[in-house]
Design a protein around this nucleic acid. Structure first.
Lengths: 118, 118
DNA sequence: TGAACATATGAGCATATATTCATATATTTT
DNA sequence: AAAATATATGAATATATGCTCATATGTTCA
């Protein structure tokens, strides 16, 4: 029996190669954690709702037609990953996007979808 | 008892606003589905491994130190969402990235992480 | 054709996660 | 201070998901 070929076929570096250096494994785990946050329809809809306007929990739960508690739980996730920030306004908590990367990540995702639909 | 104020506070449009129009709910669900694919450490590591080189299943499972079956299952997910493509080379199946958006989405995610670490 | 090799796939299991319900905390108003 | 309002949080439950094991499928080579 022959030994399996262990060689790997290298690929030409890309024209528009954005990643200069491959991230280490630990960073990749962090990346996965980040995208996991984007990977839920409720959270994505919250982020979308917060583009162009800041909103309180009540308005969010109305716009998404979901319970206040569910929204609040997800806002907690979004906040702890730094995608959203909150300020108090009287009794209300007003939420807004905390990072412009949210929009760029969004945009890239949309482009992928549109690209694949063709 | 007074009626709750239903008004929403609009926010100034952003300087670098990438999203021209807010996507409809259906598209948002698709977006969440896409990011869900990125939101797993095994799949993220596969994608990272495929940057700069194409690899067969065996090499991937060696590099990630995981079982062949687990890798194969995840490659199926990656393929069905159009992030990865496969070509046969003899007995091997050779996988490579299928969309440059993978790299840009990656890059944006990394920027967010670095931005937050400061 | 049959053996060896490479990958894919289905079932089962264990874990993770999203929502709901009940309740706690915080702020304002009377 | 008490009531009303707005949000946060913990427990419980139902569902989703990733990995493993066993096995099927596909390809090459003797």
């Amino acid at each position: 029996m022959k030994e399996r070929d262990k060689s790997i076929i290298p690929v030409e570096p890309d024209d528009n190669c954005i990643i200069s250096e491959l991230p280490d494994t630990e960073t990749l785990y962090d990346l996965a954690e980040l995208f996991k946050v984007f990977g839920d329809s409720t959270r994505i809809r919250i982020l979308a709702a917060l583009m162009g306007k800041e909103m309180c929990v009540y308005h969010l739960s109305e716009e998404l037609e979901m319970g206040q508690s569910a929204i609040s739980h997800q806002l907690r996730v979004l906040r702890s990953s730094g995608l959203v920030k909150a300020t108090r306004n009287g009794k209300e908590m007003v939420y807004s996007l905390d990072d412009n990367h949210v929009k760029t990540i969004f945009a890239q995702g949309l482009e992928h979808i549109e690209h694949k639909q063709k």
